[in-house]
Design a protein around this nucleic acid. Structure first.
Lengths: 335, 335
DNA sequence: CTGTTAGCGCTTTCAC
DNA sequence: GTGAAAGCGCTAACAG
């Protein structure tokens, strides 16, 4: 089927031993220059490439990292993946990507599969279900095996590993502060991801900031995005508000559309800010002010930390947590 | 670092030979039931899993497929990837994903890398640049090595491999026909992806249908999405039209927003249909009528074909082309 | 029934 | 300078 040149074949053709060929290809000073040249020449001719499998088996390194994502249709994770892929390939690593679909079982299954496929390390964002059932044995197992892990965005606080997170509470505080400064007094917080820790942090931050400004927040928490359209529409219709902070992009996008349907003008009647500067905020009308989580940087950072860990020879490694600063992107509603 | 149980260790502990242990784990009838049980027990105890690398080296199969995508932030490809991942994992395959970022060089580089990493096959959508420079040597190389390949959506017609495509021309014909039937007479076709073959097919279909209805299409082709906002705005402002077919989601989304800015009502003043039923059409206001390419099915289908090919023992294999039928999704602009 | 042997492709130590 | 040999973890043909 697939014929690939091996050291053996080169050796035979050159009347050399396998080991000499191997060394020549690495320009080992032990070998005479003449031989080295002969070997390189033939190798080039046959476009010889060492068999990655064999090298990995020997070296116990695969130059592959396992990625566990809860979702990929979510723009935030797509961007993160983009950042991960770019940085990984720049560092000479391949990525094995698995999507847990927010399922705990899938997360466990994929983790084991990738682990037995000998990835050099993991980059993981927790599935929603894992955060709900609160079971983390599979992570303890990884820890025991000393497999390098970087968790990002949706992390398990008690896990003793590198982490890259976003300053969710701070981002919320800033957003509410901005709304308050603009004169809004009836601010609502809407979310479809209430079960996630990040949402809890965002809510916390929002409340802190509201309190500081003497405001009381309204809130709408949807179990999921399924009936977001009608629920948000009704909420907006029946609640006096002049601003909305959407804790996820769907909430914010649906809020904008509901405002249209209700004839509320944005931002004159209602100001809207949404978490995550995804594609929806870019192409909504009017454009959505949003909180950028710099997902691509976040993904790239995760790779950097992981590769540093993997390639760090000392076996003592102190876990670090990197916080990515969000930024509030205000968009002129007229363009 | 990472300690994993091997056959050797099990063998030693059980006072058996490595091969007996190996056979026992496969329930080889040659081995006595008693031994089989002993082996299984200890294996379970140590949670033994065969080293995938070693198995692959021996079998020349990695149960891994290489995915080459032009982009991942594009919702269509994200959906396709989702479908690919789901089906692959159901079939027991892992995926190595690389993003070419529409670059020819990256495409070549990644393909070589994945090929030397011994993927069992490839699923590929061509990068834009590859279609422009029109160089396909790297595919001929794959063909020569008899590596199974499935191309999807953006395919190279002359490649002798399985393909999964969308009936782009037909989809366009239907869309234009629908607009004509609704009484539109000044239809414009807008695109930011004119260099892609799929766009050419879509344009062709649109013209066919227009001609049939005695209509003359207007057209706006943007080199890229960078200045889409202003270019589309100006086009709509200066051209008398009552309908737009967007050949990509960005065109359609920006068209909708521009209509808002110009005070054109949708669909009363202007009807808009966009290719690809992505997240933008779902959350635009009013919701965008769109042409669904069933990206997830498409991805899943690609995996099915590839795995069938990989696991098909006969070495004669006749390439097939699967056409995914699009559907026109009409969305009520009032909900 | 169980074990020995060879080999997948490569690296690395140790002889010559 | 070059080569023989062992071993990474596994499978499979062949002996006993």
């Amino acid at each position: 089927m697939r014929k690939k040149v091996t050291l053996k074949q080169l050796a035979r053709e050159l009347n050399l031993s396998i080991s000499t060929v191997s060394k020549s290809l690495k320009n080992d000073p032990e070998i005479s220059e003449k031989t080295i040249n002969r070997v390189h020449e033939l190798a080039q001719f046959y476009n010889y490439k060492p068999n990655a499998l064999a090298v990995s088996l020997k070296s116990n390194r695969t130059k592959t990292i396992g990625i566990l994502l809860p979702e990929i249709l979510n723009h935030f994770f797509a961007k993160a993946l983009n950042g991960i892929e770019k940085e990984a390939s720049a560092r000479g690593y391949k990525i094995l990507t698995c999507i847990t679909n927010e399922s705990y079982d899938k997360e466990v299954e994929y983790m084991e599969m990738l682990n037995h496929s000998s990835v050099d390390g993991f980059i993981i964002a927790l599935s929603e279900e894992t955060q709900i059932v609160n079971k983390y044995d599979h992570y303890e197992a990884l820890k025991r095996e000393k497999v390098p892990v970087v968790m990002f965005d949706r992390v398990w606080d008690q896990m003793d590993c590198d982490k890259v997170i976003v300053d969710d509470a701070e981002a919320s505080r800033n957003a509410i502060q901005y709304l308050a400064d603009s004169g809004c007094t009836n601010i609502a917080v809407i979310t479809t991801i209430g079960d996630l820790n990040v949402a809890k942090l965002r809510i916390e931050g929002a409340h802190q900031s509201a309190e500081k400004n003497g405001l009381l927040l309204k809130g709408l928490t949807l179990k999921n995005a399924t009936h977001a359209e009608e629920e948000i529409y009704n909420f907006l219709k029946n609640t006096a508000i002049d601003a909305v902070l959407g804790l996820d992009e769907t909430s914010a996008a649906v809020t904008i559309n509901s405002c249209h349907r209700l004839g509320y003008k944005i931002p004159e009647d209602v100001s809207v800010i949404g978490f995550s500067d995804g594609i929806l905020s870019k192409y909504s009308y009017p454009k959505l002010s949003s909180i950028s989580q710099h997902a691509e940087d976040l993904g790239a950072k995760a790779v950097t930390m992981l590769v540093d860990h993997i390639e760090n020879t000392k076996d003592s490694y102190t876990p670090r947590t990197e916080v990515i600063k969000t930024s509030l992107i205000l968009r002129d509603s007229t363009n």
